[in-house]
Design a protein around this nucleic acid. Structure first.
Lengths: 68, 68
DNA sequence: GCATAATGATCTTTAGGAGAACATTTTGAG
DNA sequence: CTCAAAATGTTCTCCTAAAGATCATTATGC
């Protein structure tokens, strides 16, 4: 499965969902879905905005976890 | 921007688009779009199947490149 | 306690991936 | 070279989930 570490990255930076939504320009609902890992599809533009804002690479945001 | 290295990974392994499509169960059109980097949205399930088949992590498949 | 902000939840709209079918190109055997 | 099969490219429809907006609920702090 693919695990999204947005909540962890946001926690480390003490960021709120609204902050991330406002700063990245990404819809708040989308951030919420990624935060709670209920998203099953992602726009590359969204990944781009998050990586740029969080100063991280794609591999830190999404991780491939063996099994299920 | 987000760069997809599927073509590079496939080249290294000398894989054809049909091979990847057949082995991963992912639609050939989807593989084609990722191969030519014309996709702007991706299913996490697709990323999962590709990582599993190619034996790589998400960061090797997608890279965040600064600029534009 | 109250006002404001943040989050959660839900609805509609819409973009684009998924899937399939057809066209074209490439490849290899004879 | 010729032909057939396979691989790739292209284009179409369908359908799902992100995007966007709104309302309800829950924190936060003054």
């Amino acid at each position: 499965m693919i695990k999204c570490h947005l909540s962890k990255l946001m926690g480390e930076r003490k960021l709120k969902i609204v902050d991330v939504a406002r700063e990245t320009g990404v819809n708040r609902g989308t951030i919420t879905r990624l935060y709670h890992e209920t998203a099953s599809r992602v726009e590359l533009e969204t990944i781009d905005a998050l990586c740029r804002f969080l100063g991280c690479d794609v591999g830190e945001l999404f991780e491939f976890v063996e099994g299920s």
